[in-house]
Design a protein around this nucleic acid. Structure first.
Length: 493
RNA sequence: GUCCCCAUCGUCUAGUCAGGUCCAGGACACUGGGUUUUCAUCCCAGCAACGCCGGUUCGAAUCCGACUGGGGACGCCA
């Protein structure tokens, strides 16, 4: 058996979006599973829409997700001579012909067909032009496109789709499609096939929106005497209104980069994305990379489109709730050392990073992350809601301020009292601090909760958090004492 | 409109190819409860689906046929 060769051919007309990432993921998974290769090919023939920025965005997105490739990136524009050679070959062998019909003429016919409610297809006006007629028109300088000559016969052409089964179409229903523009530039349909033949692509996994292309491309493979690769059309990802998700329509929510900035763990997103249209056949949902590679198969790709369930304007779920829950799962269960590596850039961004977190303070850093991770959903939360652990400059949220501090006027004196006692503690630990706090509450004849919750708010700025005495250990004696002493400041304003 | 594809909880899906073990399983979300001085984690429970009709069969989510619904493609874009 020859090596499996897959490819991911994005066109650089925008950032990598989650649909594209999912396609890349499937190809990558299958390449890994079969010990094959993944080729990255940038389809930049649409010069007007292709940008350097977009190419970079795609490469960055793939790297962030951990999708590596074995060859490339190749750029389609570098192989224009191949494309031209192929169109010449088709022309020379009589499998394609020059068409001099103008756009305007075709538009008229297209509209007429729409009106008559019949299927539009090129009517073959130029198909039977004689060599002399063609030469004459060319001599007159008339522009022409090259059309593929679809075999003029009854019957059908088909291919065996790995997920959809046998797909067929009647020759009669396929029009003579254009393969070269009047400018002489070959089109996607041709370029794609030529490139895939040259790159010896054995399997093509792509969205089912390509299904009609595939039939025509099979024709092209045959005409070019090349073996037809294995095709697998994966279902599309739709929005809640069942429209194809797109960057233009949905904005940043579909861009991979958005998830990176939001603080997603790359693998959590990948894991979620893969399950949108594929399942292992059992109840397993969380996989390591190796497990997923092992479990993946083309045959288990679904036929049904799936819905990316994100509701615009829902503050609690800024994206698909299940994607968020996957992130929470990984945030909670991954080795804390791995989390630390991913948290670093977020702390740096907030100017909270200390090099000692990788040196002397590493142990403290890891245990602090471990202490707080259960309540967070995104990596960015550590530098945001978790700011008080890393800096003395943090804001106290309004809600806990009112509920846990301002409501109890006495805290203005009680907390500084507590600070004094904490400071006097020879052994500042979980047990002694708790005992100290409870003793104070008893002496003052107030509920311990008043002291504890007030303390949480003053020390962390948050309404909720880990066990109070764990917090006290994480923040440290000195900083706790200082924050408690400054409680009066909160009553001002 | 034409051609093609698809159809199980609100969402992701298992079960369909090889009909009975499915009054349909898991997960997310939601609701309730337990744990928790807070919040969350965690644990338990609940809610909730085979699009419709007909056929085949002792028996249909599963096979067949219509219907309905949804999606995709109909570019000198990729």
């Amino acid at each position: 058996m020859t090596e499996t060769r897959l490819r991911f051919p994005p066109s650089p007309t925008g950032y990598l979006h989650i649909g594209g990432a999912r396609t890349a993921l499937y190809n990558w998974l299958y390449a890994k599973k079969t010990g094959g290769k993944l080729i990255l090919r940038i389809e930049d023939t649409d010069a007007e829409r292709s940008t350097q920025e977009s190419i970079q965005g795609i490469l960055d997105g793939m790297k962030w997700l951990g999708i590596d490739w074995d060859e490339g990136p190749y750029f389609q524009t570098e192989f224009e001579s191949d494309h031209e050679a192929a169109s010449k070959k088709l022309l020379d062998t009589g499998k394609a012909y020059k068409c001099f019909c103008t756009k305007e003429e075709l538009d008229v016919k297209r509209e007429a067909a729409q009106k008559n409610k019949t299927q539009y297809g090129y009517d073959g006006t130029c198909r039977s032009l004689s060599a002399e007629e063609v030469a004459e028109k060319e001599a007159a300088g008339l522009p022409f496109v090259v059309r593929f000559k679809v075999p003029d016969q009854d019957g059908e052409i088909g291919y065996d789709d790995k997920v959809l089964g046998y797909i067929k179409a009647q020759y009669r229903e396929i029009e003579d499609f254009v393969i070269v523009r009047s400018t002489g530039k070959p089109l996607y349909l041709l370029c794609n096939v030529v490139d895939d033949i040259r790159d010896r692509i054995s399997h093509i996994i792509r969205g089912s929106d390509h299904m009609t292309n595939t039939i025509r491309q099979v024709l092209l493979y045959n005409a070019l005497d090349a073996p037809v690769p294995v095709f697998a059309h994966m279902p599309l990802t739709l929005d809640t209104k069942k429209a194809k998700i797109s960057k233009r329509k949905h904005g940043e929510i579909v861009a991979v980069q958005f998830y990176e900035e939001k603080g997603f763990i790359p693998w959590a997103l990948s894991n979620f994305l893969v399950l949108l249209g594929w399942s292992p056949g059992n109840d397993t949902e969380f996989f390591t990379q190796d497990e997923l590679i092992e479990a993946f198969s083309l045959e288990r790709i679904n036929k049904t489109n799936s819905i990316f369930n994100y509701q615009k304007g829902n503050a609690k779920f800024f994206t698909d709730p299940k994607a968020i829950s996957f992130n929470e799962h990984y945030l909670r269960t991954m080795p804390i050392e791995d989390i630390a590596v991913m948290v670093k850039p977020f702390l740096e961004k907030e100017d909270l990073w200390d090099a000692a977190y990788e040196g002397d303070k590493k142990e403290w850093f890891l245990s602090t992350l471990d202490l707080t991770r259960d309540r967070f959903q995104m990596l960015s939360d550590f530098g945001d809601r978790g700011r008080a652990y890393f800096s003395d400059e943090f804001t106290v949220e309004q809600k806990p301020l009112k509920k846990n501090v301002l409501k109890h006027e006495g805290l203005k004196e009680w907390l500084p009292m507590l600070a004094d006692r904490f400071e006097a503690l020879a052994d500042y630990n979980l047990e002694t601090t708790e005992q100290t706090a409870r003793d104070l509450a008893t002496e003052l004849d107030i509920k311990p909760g008043v002291i504890i919750n007030g303390m949480r708010t003053v020390v962390t700025g948050q309404l909720a958090g880990p066990s109070m005495f764990d917090i006290l250990m994480a923040i440290g004696q000195e900083r706790v004492v200082s924050r408690l002493r400054n409680v009066a400041k909160l009553y001002e304003v």
